[in-house]
């Protein structure tokens, strides 16, 4: 294997891995704190990309502001849906949250196709050009996207470790009852976490949408990837989601280049199955009763 090919695969792997991790961290936050199945997570990824599309490609407004606007819009949408649909299901069998979020997938993706149309769209890139790294071409666009993803992941980690709300979130995720006794408003934490998790997916959608193309049905693949990663890393674990994201990113890059995409999926799912068979709560995850 030539060096340039190896470099290409590694760079692609890091790039994909960080973006997957961004989606998955949003999901793991919702999982860990609310203990529900949010199966429609990828739909927020899709909606986020479309918000940016209308902002940057249709209205021609500044790109980077658009990402913040997209995150804010999806935060509000996510928080509102939590209050309306998911709050009453808190503490019930996960089947109910699974069913409601499945309903959301049907509604959002079909509604998206009706509103946004079925034609594939693209968000114009703002960063162009690139540089040669060990014989492989690395575009500045991909570089910026990787840096932004990594920055957001670090930022979230800092938020969870150092701020009051962040610490409250971790407390709720570890033990909802005790933290509620300690005076934490768990209901508030729930909708904030749901909004934040969805907003992270939206940002990932913006970045991925710029790099590739967008279509209203793109959400489900993102959900699949996010679930693979979250289960691999363990529910509620941010470092787990980062590591899981990179693992899946590297499998996607290397196995797809060397063998085929179907094999990449088979290996990805088989890895998850084996890890769960030996460690039924994922690599770093919490145990649910």
């Amino acid at each position: 294997m030539a060096l340039d090919e190896l470099t290409q695969m590694t760079l692609t792997g890091i790039n994909l891995g960080l973006m997957y991790a961004l989606i998955a961290i949003g999901l793991t936050l919702i999982f860990g704190i609310m203990r529900i199945i949010q199966y429609a997570h990828g739909e927020f990824y899709m909606l986020g990309a479309y918000v940016l599309y209308y902002w940057a490609a249709v209205l021609k407004l500044p790109y980077w502001v658009g990402i913040i606007v997209s995150a804010a819009v999806i935060f509000v949408v996510g928080a509102a849906l939590q209050l309306l649909l998911f709050r009453p299901l808190h503490g019930k069998n996960i089947l109910y949250s699974l069913a409601v979020s499945m309903g959301l997938i049907f509604i959002i993706s079909s509604g998206g196709l009706l509103t946004f149309g079925t034609i594939v769209k693209g968000i114009p890139s703002v960063v162009t050009g690139g540089v040669m790294v060990f014989g492989a071409f690395y575009t500045y666009e991909r570089m910026v996207i990787s840096i932004v993803s990594a920055g957001l992941i670090l930022g979230l980690w800092y938020f969870l470790q150092r701020t009051t709300t962040g610490m409250a979130m971790r407390a709720v995720s570890q033990d909802p009852e005790v933290s509620s006794l300690q005076g934490i408003n768990t209901r508030r934490i729930h909708w904030i976490a749901f909004g934040m998790g969805s907003a992270m997916a939206a940002v990932a959608g913006c970045l991925m949408g710029t790099l590739l193309s967008i279509v209203p049905t793109m959400g489900f693949i993102a959900t699949v990837k996010a679930f693979m990663i979250v289960i691999l890393g363990g529910l509620g674990s941010v470092p787990g989601a980062l590591i899981g994201g990179l693992i899946i990113g590297f499998i996607d890059s290397f196995v797809t280049t060397l063998v085929s995409a179907d094999v990449a999926y088979i290996i990805g799912f088989a890895t998850i199955f084996v890890i769960l068979a030996f460690k039924p709560t994922g690599l770093f995850g919490q145990d649910w009763d």
Binding site: F31, I37, I94, L98, F227, M228, I231, L235, F269, A270, I272, F273, L276, A277, P280, T281, G282, G285, W288, D289
Partner: peptide
């Protein structure tokens, strides 16, 4: 596996 982990493993 149990609960959500079962759901996910069965999906896999």
């Amino acid at each position: 596996t149990r609960a959500v982990y079962f759901f996910m493993a069965s999906w896999a």
